[in-house]
Nucleic acid binder design. Structure first.
Length: 491
RNA sequence: CGGGAUGUAGCGCAGCCUGGCUAGCGCACCAGACUGGGGGUCUGGGGGUCGCGGGUUCGAAUCCCGCCAUCCCGACCA
């Protein structure tokens, strides 16, 4: 909060949220803190996820877990620690992660004979177990997911977006054939894309990562990329086809239908608590958080108008409404605190992103109605008590859709094509967003673009235009392009 | 990990340059009263080893050294 003392701007003083236009990063940090999503902890780079933030995570978990189960996956749990020797077995993997791992070298008073790393990801532990479990083609596929915490020693951290320890899910599968592994990789990519749009109202671009942005040890990496309110992209999830790299390093072998000994084809994929950061930055405004109803801890907040003997007159009606709404499965908060005025509660719950506010006062009871106020559009409407439950449910669906539509529109408005490097640089210098440009496929061009503009190649969308030969000139070097790639400055 | 900035009550800050008595202010918090349809008013209160550790000094929030944390800009990453 950079507010200094402009008494005229009472709202800003009270909310203490920096406007997005002034400083988007500070806005984000203000929202995270004021909405009580997380707090800093005594441990460098590690955040506490507070109940309101954790409730969002639980809803994300439930919605994802349903989808994983529906596609044949099961949950399991693997150890937090990895023996050093195991980590060293996949060369690219260890090179990729070594700079970021935390080591355990002592247990109690004793120096460990072999140091342990705290998992930055679990390919090696799970791969080791798969080697034991998989003997025959009949054992395949193995489709396991784990909900866990991981640790990566990051230099720069930000709540939810990048923390030393974070929560995520990591799926690890093993398959009999290469096409099956590829199919799984893309199935999950699509599952993630659909999840983000349906539950988080967050449109994402699903596509393939370039060689240099690939996961350490993967054959192919795919990602979903969202566009945040400040025009920067955020990688919301990844899905990797690991080929036989890990199977070879960890000897995941099985006897095939043709009696020959073969290495399995594996995949891994994950999304993390970072998604919460994505939700905040996709939908939020200067008043604070705006939560999509599907992942809002409270979908409706009921604010009784506290006039006169409201606790005898208004409150019982409010309680009835709460019970009716709750009975249909909605998540409802009745804010019956006497210490705060209605206006204060309005502002408070808006800041915390509750999608729908229901006001009820003496006048409403007389007229047999309530007031419904939308967080996303701020529209207020009188709604008859009769049929209220259905109306509320319908309105929440409308809000969910409206948030997605708004986010899609924002992305479209901030996605530009550039065919010359001059144009590319001009766009990246000004209003950020996605820039779609032809690219030759050379990592050197990609690196130069990054060095000169800070923009990175986010991915090449699944439905992007590709050329085997005779593509238009690469944005950077002018050689024939292989595909249209999406670039952006990213989180 | 390099460059910069900040750290004083839950939040936002003043005080530091030029050392000195009991460390202030706004919001928040507690009690009571009046209030209540967009962040109410009044009265009375509580809360601080001034980020941590050393040093200089009769005396340190203030000066010096070291460390830690956070934020911003780079390099690295979900």
């Amino acid at each position: 909060m950079t507010q200094t003392g402009d008494k005229a701007d009472k709202t800003a003083l009270v909310t203490e949220i920096t406007p997005q236009s002034e400083d988007f990063s500070q806005w984000y940090l203000d929202v995270v803190r004021k909405a009580e999503l997380s707090d800093y902890s005594p441990v460098k780079g590690c955040m506490v996820i507070r109940p309101y933030g954790y409730a969002i995570w639980e809803l994300i978990q439930q919605a994802l877990d349903r989808r994983f189960k529906a596609t044949g996956h099961v949950n399991a749990y693997f150890p937090l620690f990895i023996p050093q020797s195991l980590l060293l077995r996949e060369k690219e993997h260890v090179e990729g992660f070594a700079p970021q791992v935390a080591w355990v070298t002592k247990g109690g008073d004793e120096q460990l004979a072999e140091p342990l790393v705290v998992r930055p990801t679990s390919e090696v532990v799970i791969g080791t177990m798969y080697a034991k479990w998989i003997k025959s083609w009949r054992d395949l596929p193995v489709l396991i997911n784990q909900w866990a915490n991981v640790v990566r020693w990051e230099k720069v951290t930000r709540p939810f977006l990048r923390t030393t320890e974070f929560l995520w899910q990591e799926g690890h599968t093993a398959h009999e054939t290469e096409p099956e592994a590829q199919e799984e990789t893309l199935r999950i990519l699509e599952l993630y894309r659909e999840f983000c749009e349906t539950e988080l109202a967050m449109p994402v671009v699903a596509g393939q990562k370039s060689e240099s942005e690939k996961f350490a040890g993967a054959q192919k990496t795919y990602s979903i990329e969202g566009l945040m309110g400040d025009g920067r992209a955020m990688q919301a999830g990844t899905s990797h086809n690991l080929g036989q790299n890990f199977a070879k390093a960890f000897e995941i072998q099985f006897q095939g239908r043709d009696k020959s000994l073969q290495h399995a084809w594996t995949t891994s994929w994950g999304v993390s608590t970072r998604l919460i950061g994505g939700v905040i930055m996709t939908h939020g405004d200067d008043s604070g958080l705006i939560l999509p109803p599907r992942v809002a801890p409270y979908q409706v907040v009921i604010v009784p108008i506290s006039r006169g003997n409201w606790q005898e007159t208004v409150l019982p009606r409010a309680q009835e409404i709460r019970d009716d709404l709750t009975a249909t499965g909605l998540r409802v908060m009745l804010d019956d605190r006497d210490a705060y005025t209605p206006g204060w509660k309005f502002a408070e719950w808006e800041m915390r992103g509750v999608p729908l506010r229901l006001e009820i006062g003496p006048k409403d009871i007389e007229k047999n109605q309530v007031v419904l106020a939308r967080r996303d559009s701020r529209e207020k409407a009188f709604v008859p008590m009769a049929g209220l439950t259905a109306h509320v449910a319908g309105l929440l669906d409308t809000i969910q859709r409206a948030l997605l539509d708004r986010a899609v529109k924002f992305r479209e408005e901030h996605t530009t094509r550039a065919d010359t490097y001059e144009e590319f640089k001009r766009i990246m210098d000004g209003r950020p967003g996605f820039v779609i440009s032809p690219w030759c496929g050379d990592a050197e061009c990609e690196a130069q673009i990054k060095a000169e503009t800070q923009a990175t190649l986010r991915n090449i969308p699944m439905n992007a235009v590709r050329w085997d030969a005779g593509g238009p000139p690469c944005i950077k070097c002018g050689r024939p392009a292989v595909a249209e790639a999406w670039f952006a400055k990213a989180y």
